[in-house]
Amino acid sequence: MDIVVCVKTNPDLEMVRVKDRVAQTEGVPYKIGDLEKNALEAAVALREAGAAAKVTALCLAEGNRKAAEDIKTALAMGADEAVVVDDPALADPDEAAVAAALAAAVKKIGACDLLLFGEGSSDNYTGQVGARVAELLGLPQIGYARKVEAADGAVRCERSMDDMIETVEAPLPAAVTVVSEINEPRIPGLMQIMKAKSKPLQVWSLADLGLEAPAPVREIVSNLAKEQDRKHIVFEGTAAEQADAFVDALTREGVLGR
């Protein structure tokens, strides 16, 4: 069984500073998204358990000039090969364009029995791409996977639902999107990082995939959070009095007791 893990690199959100309500991304390093690391870990664990033969990490360079460098983390974590689709036309793609490029790349990679994704990306978290790619490739898709097992031409997943755990099985090839409970991604050691350097890494353009530059179907008008003024109410008195006054105030504001 061959596994392809779709990974997205995005700015390390912890490192983004906000100045005058604008995110300062200059100099902020890119890294592989948290849930994508879970997906990678799941794939490598399947290979290490003998359930998979090869793990390929697939990444789109969405205007991130260093994706080919950043994807080496996936190789250091244990992926066998990496493919980067790097094209200026992917500078700010919407989910449809991302899914189209990924689906085309998966086809070009060829051997792919299990396609793994993070449930959502660390920056935008639209949670659409896994399902869209599955649809484009005509694959069954399992979301919110907290456990993945593959055997006898099928993938069996535990799905993390709000109030239950659902166990679902699908015939391979299939697509699975994972959540963070699935595992604790490894932090690669120096030796693994050094070995990653010599693993195969291919860079393709959209033209290599037979795709044209995507026409944007969405326009971001604003993504600023609504500015809210604080109420600046200070409660005096004993702890009990303060608590009562606090509850009263919250009730007045309509936050409590609706």
Binding site: E14, M15, G27, V28, I187
Partner: peptide
């Protein structure tokens, strides 16, 4: 160690 500790921007 690893990715931990203070990170100046």
């Amino acid at each position: 160690g690893g990715p931990y500790g203070v990170q100046y921007r």
